[in-house]
């Protein structure tokens, strides 16, 4: 905070702080309170709102817990988001290391442009690309059958397809923070570790990863949050019979029209995301400010 005042002076710095507070209030606090408020109240027809029956209850949450498979879908969403996070992390770490420490300047530029091009399209179109690739009569099945690896086409749509689609959609949010973090690692640190007799594995475990910790934590938080809240990928790539939690929330709001129950489901998802984020930060021993930096 004092940093801001030092850099911009009192009046301008004050303006920024006020703007940020307004933004937080308008975009986070007010909708958040609205959501929590309606999640705790029963769904009533308009004439009865504010009447005797409009009291605070945990019914909406109890409904989620007691429902025959919503709880299970909730867990599947959490678990799949964790899987997406792990998959992107495992994929991105070597690539980020290569980009940040090994590649020459022009190799890095070419790679970054190539990786960014697909992201110039919006998320729906990118999801659609996977939709086409994974289709029963699509290029993936055709290719695998041409290679003789498959005898008949496989139904890729389903949870596997959703995970693949989400990993693809969010991979750069993992790559860039890690890449940035590794780029600031002095080359001499790696040379010194090697010179002292360290194996490549130990160099990564003891030198590169601790240095990239903040970037890894940031990437994991980003990807997990986005995967847990993703709607497009499950809608496009999920199997017809298997729904995702975001889809159920959507249904409560816009198909069934029970905003209160939808709000309860949304709050449950939010609470879960928040606890996972805090858990991740604690695991990496990173505090929130340095993660945001």
């Amino acid at each position: 905070m004092t940093e801001i005042f030092q850099r911009f002076g009192k009046p301008l710095g004050g303006c920024f702080v006020v703007l940020v507070l307004l933004w937080l209030a308008g975009m986070v606090l007010v909708p958040g309170i609205f959501m929590i408020n309606s999640s705790l109240r029963p769904h009533l027809p308009p004439p009865l709102r504010g009447g005797d029956q409009d009291v605070y209850l945990f019914d909406n949450f109890a409904y989620l817990i007691n429902h025959s498979n919503h709880g299970q879908i909730f867990l599947k969403t959490v678990w799949s988001s964790a899987l997406v996070t792990m998959a992107t992390l495992l994929l991105c770490y070597p690539v980020a290391y290569w980009l940040a420490q090994v590649a020459s300047k022009w190799q890095m530029r070419v790679m970054l442009v190539l990786m960014l091009v697909p992201y110039l399209m919006n998320e729906v179109l990118r999801g659609l690309a996977w939709y086409i690739i994974l289709a029963l009569a699509g290029p993936l099945n055709a290719g695998l059958m041409a290679l003789g690896l498959l005898d008949e086409p496989v139904r890729w749509y389903g949870d596997g397809g959703v995970v693949a689609g989400m990993a693809y959609a969010y991979v750069l949010f993992m790559l860039f923070p890690i890449c940035n973090a590794i780029a600031t690692l002095e080359k001499d640190q790696i040379s010194a570790a090697r010179d002292l007799g360290s194996s490549a594995w130990r160099i990564h475990w003891r030198i590169v990863l601790p240095h990239a910790k903040v970037g890894v934590a940031t990437g994991c938080v980003f990807v997990f949050m986005m995967a847990a809240g993703s709607y497009v990928a499950p809608a496009l790539l999920g199997a017809p019979g298997s729904r995702w939690f975001t889809q159920i929330v959507y249904e409560w709001f816009f198909e069934i029209g029970n905003w209160n129950r939808g709000a309860a489901y949304g709050v449950a998802l939010m609470a879960m995301c928040l606890s996972v984020v805090l858990g991740l930060l604690a695991l990496f021993r990173v505090n929130l400010t340095s993660a945001i930096k």
Partner: peptide, 20 residues
């Protein structure tokens, strides 16, 4: 390779490991 040589280097930047 350098990790198998009987030499040890002191770098201009020292290159101490900051997280240890």
């Amino acid at each position: 390779p350098s990790n198998k040589r009987a030499t040890a280097m002191i770098f201009q930047s020292l290159a101490l490991f900051p997280f240890m």
